[in-house]
Simulated scan of single mutants.
Amino acid sequence: MDWPIFDGHNDTLFELYLPEAGKERSFFIQSDVGHLDLPRARAGGLGGGFFAVYLASPPSADQPERPAEGPFCMPLPEALDLGYSQRIALAMSGLLFRLEAEAQGALKVVRDARELRTCLEQGVVAAILHFEGAEAIDPGLEALDLFYQAGLRSLGPVWSRPNAFGHGVPFAYPHSPDTGPGLTAAGQDLIRACNRLGIMIDLSHLNEAGFWDVARISTAPLVATHSNAHALCPSSRNLTDKQLAAIRESDGMVGLNFAVSFLRPDGRQDAATPISIMVDHVLYLVEQLGIDRVGFGSDFDGATIPQAIGDVRGLPHLMAALAEHFGPEDLRKLAYANWVRVLAKTWREG
């Protein structure tokens, strides 16, 4: 049976809001640019996902290109200004709500598990508003309740750069995720406030010290929306076995990142990466976490993904490869049910 696929991460809002010259596109018209639009989502069986608000550094910031192969350790851009961050976050959040208004019922920004389940059952693309980094939240957390009321239901305390709440993990290979200090006092308050509101906390870009701070403080399941197994690809962005064990104990989950440099054992930015390597990570994550705690977190529109997937229309190819290892019920869990479970638990809806 073909299951709707729920995806833990995409950067489509950023690509629509600030496209490269010549790569402008509409979310409602099928394109060969990028990875995701509504027609391609339907063709690929995408039932929904986390739509990330990613705040790029200002154009004046000098950010070198990531090398095609390791070893490397990329310098991180400087922390962002609160005013700049809030302006961009408001604009990108507003873009998602405009897409919802223009979709004529084909896309819905969901705020609870009931809405999510209904969308998946009815073939409506379910979008969760996610902040990839909390730069738009002031250290006093006055803006957090406002963004929650607007629809924010998932938050990564940091994208890899440092901010008022903690320190992200730099892009480095081969490298441990243990790269510096953890959460600040404001970051610890942020975790408690997210627990109070029922905002999911995404660990994907936190360094290891920050990960353990969240594990110590949070009362919610530990979730990494788009990360892979460090044992198979020793990138700083991937999770160690010890971290995976903590996620398992919390009854959380991990979404498989499709970025080739986080999949390949050699860490190369090489799109000629076979689907079998993606399957290897899923099998390893299931071994470490259990079948109920693994899903997908593609990083569509934010990463180089395997040519064999291409874009969202390639999701059935991944499911077909996984069907050689898993039965129908386990495929249902990997496709969407595990995400529904952990979100309902995080949002305290049972």
Rank of each mutant, 00 (worst) to 15 (best):
F6Q: 03
H9W: 01
N10R: 10
N10E: 10
Y17N: 04
P19R: 13
A21G: 13
A21R: 10
G22S: 13
G22I: 09
F27L: 06
Q30A: 14
L36Y: 03
D37T: 09
R40W: 09
A41G: 12
G44N: 07
F50K: 01
A52Q: 01
L55V: 08
A61Q: 14
D62I: 15
R66I: 09
E69P: 03
F72D: 06
P75G: 02
P77H: 04
D81Y: 13
G83N: 15
S85R: 02
Q86V: 08
M92D: 04
A103E: 01
G105C: 00
L107R: 00
R114S: 15
C119V: 02
V125P: 09
A126P: 09
F131E: 02
E132R: 08
A134M: 00
I137T: 05
G140C: 10
D145A: 14
L152W: 05
S154Y: 00
S160N: 12
R161L: 13
N163T: 05
A164F: 05
G166R: 03
G168S: 11
G168W: 02
F171Y: 12
P177M: 03
T179Q: 13
T184C: 04
L190W: 02
I199T: 01
M200D: 01
I201F: 05
S204E: 06
S204G: 07
S204P: 00
N207C: 08
E208I: 05
G210M: 08
R216P: 05
N228V: 12
H230I: 10
C233D: 01
C233I: 07
S235R: 00
S235E: 11
S235K: 04
S235G: 09
S236P: 03
S236E: 10
A246G: 11
R248L: 07
M253S: 10
P265C: 12
P265W: 13
G267R: 11
R268K: 15
A272S: 14
A272K: 14
S276L: 10
I277V: 15
E287Q: 15
G290H: 07
S298N: 05
S298E: 13
D299I: 02
A303F: 01
A308Q: 14
G310L: 03
V312G: 10
V312P: 03
V312L: 11
L318G: 00
A321R: 14
L322W: 00
H325M: 07
H325V: 10
P328W: 13
L334K: 01
A337N: 02
A337P: 08
V342E: 05
T346M: 01
